[in-house]
């Protein structure tokens, strides 16, 4: 658990109650990110999520809020289990396909980049809670990749995979960078092997120099790709979210007192809300009273 000095001094009195409630379970945050060359998440958290310096980090915070950068070491999927390409859509690789991390996907030509050269490069992964037995895969964008375009899986070329690693807090490897010019992106996947399906993803912007840097970003519309959240691939045991018949429907504004039928029963709305999948009347007694 990170007790941040600023937070602690700022609103200590207000926080005490919630902190007490939080304490039992927060400590061991698994996880990490690339620190060299630093990932986008690492760059923005180092700049400071509340007051970032670079235009790219400012835009990322504007697009998705600060929390992604406080949780810089959790750009992860708990349900990955090696299915990275299935669960993370093109255009969302840097943010692991998660809305929380959508700011990392911004296709910009001005993400702070580390200067690199072709040949051996020592890279460092910073893990705040290392997990034994993990596989680390490293990729680089293909020649001609345009940073002003959303990153796709097909843009990546495999460099090297280190299997069955036992990462420490800082782990170094040496990878061999191919010939490139201008901007490129090093992508990593950390897949845990034992005890969890969890995987972590990073995007590190690098610059080989002498590049035909693509024409300056026509400031990509800051609108984060509001792609409909990828339907979770792991469909858990189906709940009665199918249509069991009735007048209730998701996406409907219901006022208190309104009656609907669902699964053969009648319910009365207790509190105004717009319905949604997962809030079927029998599942949310706080919103619907069965009559």
């Amino acid at each position: 658990m990170y007790v941040r000095p600023k937070a602690a001094t700022g609103a200590a009195a207000l926080m005490l109650g919630s902190l007490l409630a939080v304490i039992p379970t927060t400590p061991a945050q698994a996880h990490g990110s690339m620190s060299n060359p630093p990932s986008r998440a690492y760059v923005c958290k180092t700049e400071g999520p509340d007051n970032p310096k670079s235009a790219a980090c400012k835009a990322a915070v504007a697009a998705g809020g600060t929390q992604a950068f406080y949780d810089w070491h959790e750009v992860s999927r708990l349900d990955a289990g090696g299915r990275h390409r299935e669960i993370i859509p093109d255009g969302q690789l840097c943010g692991a396909g998660r809305d929380k991390y959508r700011g990392l996907n911004l296709a910009r030509t001005d993400w702070p980049a580390t200067r690199v050269s072709p040949g051996p490069l020592t890279i460092t992964y910073h893990a705040t809670a290392p997990h034994a037995n993990s596989n680390f895969e490293f990729y680089i964008t293909k020649p001609g990749w345009n940073p002003a375009q959303p990153l796709r899986w097909s843009d990546l070329e495999h460099i090297r995979t280190f299997n069955n690693q036992n990462p420490g807090t800082y782990t170094n490897w040496t990878i061999n960078l191919p010939q490139r010019s201008g901007r490129a992106l090093i992508y990593s996947i950390w897949q845990r092997v034992v005890g969890s399906e969890e995987a972590f993803y990073t995007c590190s912007d690098v610059d080989f120099g002498g590049g035909s840097n693509p024409s300056p970003t026509p400031t990509p519309t800051v609108t984060p790709t509001v792609t409909p959240t990828p339907t979770p691939t792991v469909t858990p045991t189906p709940t009665p979210t199918s249509q069991p018949g009735g007048t209730w429907a998701p996406g409907t504004a219901y006022a208190a007192g309104v009656r609907v039928t669902y699964g053969g029963a009648t319910y009365q709305c207790r509190q105004a809300h717009t319905s949604l999948t997962g809030w079927e009347p029998p599942n949310v007694p706080a919103l619907w009273q069965r009559l």
Partner: peptide, 8 residues
């Protein structure tokens, strides 16, 4: 593979 809870 736990996630952190929203902190104070």
């Amino acid at each position: 593979g736990g996630m952190p809870e929203t902190a104070a």
